[in-house]
Design a protein around this nucleic acid. Sequence first.
DNA 1: CGTTCTTATCGCCTTCTGGTGTTATGTTAT
DNA 2: ATAACATAACACCAGAAGGCGATAAGAACG
Lengths: 266, 266
Amino acid sequence: MTSEVDGDTTELSRPARRQAEIAAYVVKHGSVSANDLVEAFGVSVMTVHRDLDELERQGVVRKYRGGVSAQPTSVFESNVAYRLNTAHAEKAAIARHARTMIEPGMSVMLDDSTSALALIDLIEDITPLTVATNFLPAITRLSQLRDITLLALGGIYSATHDSFGGMPCAEAVEALHTDLLFCSVSAVSSTHAFHQEEEIVLVKRAMLRSARTKVLLVDHAKLQRTALHRLAPLTDFDVVIVDEKTPQDLIEPLRDHGATVEVAKL
Amino acid sequence: MTSEVDGDTTELSRPARRQAEIAAYVVKHGSVSANDLVEAFGVSVMTVHRDLDELERQGVVRKYRGGVSAQPTSVFESNVAYRLNTAHAEKAAIARHARTMIEPGMSVMLDDSTSALALIDLIEDITPLTVATNFLPAITRLSQLRDITLLALGGIYSATHDSFGGMPCAEAVEALHTDLLFCSVSAVSSTHAFHQEEEIVLVKRAMLRSARTKVLLVDHAKLQRTALHRLAPLTDFDVVIVDEKTPQDLIEPLRDHGATVEVAKL
DNA sequence: CGTTCTTATCGCCTTCTGGTGTTATGTTAT
DNA sequence: ATAACATAACACCAGAAGGCGATAAGAACG
């Protein structure tokens, strides 16, 4: 009974998908033994343990001798929401739209978001170009490209985000001033952008101060939601790019509050 | 004719090794055509061009219609692939010796040297540990390790060194103060450490100012040589580690001038 | 205008890696 | 002490990725 809702799940690798299903199973039953999972999923006990170790690392379950128990549902829900939220096609469309804003000779700052990563694949032929980012996958890819000046924003490495942050990063950001900033957040209300982690907010705020034109990249799944920390009002961004699947009645409120919203065509 | 001398060359992938050899060939001959290289290395013209593109990206050669010419030798010597090729066993020994100086809980700074890279493979089980470096391969590897706090020193990416430098990097270094610094240079006389590139000297000097205990890692091939820029007197380092193959009569002068020299056993 | 050099595209082959089960060893509970 | 469970170490397999050359199209030189 692999959910065939839409193309989402195909984005996940086989073990990742199974782990998500195991997580759902554990949350549903509250507490199960490893052997139960062996039967339920038709894999070896070893593989079950490996999956459970990974889920425990993510904070979704707690292991004890004889089985596992579910953690508070909020953790599970945020985890699954994150994993199912691939929105791959939408992000590519947003990236294509963002790309049109970049001209040769500009300096561009990217934050640690998958949207930024999608953008990198498109800017290869804009030369010359300077790109500054604190996102390790982005740094790795940009380092391979000729004709692009890469400015790495260092800092304390976070395995969760695969990026650099903290005060050292904020300081590195503050020493710059780029023409453009593309950044993303985890939640967007009709008036503000939000993020759940203070460390990240610190860096993103610094980025907002260090760019002339600020662009917010938002796929529709993030709209009408909030998170712990209010990052900035949407009017702080020069442009907010949303994908085509965004319902019109979610776009209007943003515009009513003064935001400049552009819709990326697929 | 794959050299079976010792374990050295196995460190590089086949294309990387060939590229390093091509680089050496070009430097030696000053200027060669693509067809010359086809004959000399027994690969197709297409592969030669791919290799040359990569070497040009690294700044080692300059392509023109009909062939390539060498860049100033300083660039070649700085080239990472070239450096990786040399004195592998000695560097491992030096790294093992350096490792003994690291205690759990310390903060360690590493520069963009292959010696530093060798050290990384040995510190995995020293926990907790904080490591700061501007060397991209080092950053990539350290990011995989749990229990190690990674502090990336950002800056302007240099394809030649595969590391970050320039003023942004120097500033990032200056904001820190680590317990230890392990660094390497391209040349060491009986009194001073030298390096051929000003940009690099800038960063290394900053590192020297930002560490309590400074350790210089030197394989014997670098002794009794000089380069354009004088980095610092050897007495600025608390310890100078050399490998076992260093002739005794090269070690004595260092000690006579006040340096603390330790010999790494193979 | 043709020759020479360069680049793009494709398909083959090799190598590497990730994912898995099996067996063996270690650990905890009863 | 012994059974149940967990982990470690090894080997296998498949799919992905990388590296390479052949061919063909493109660009620069004389």
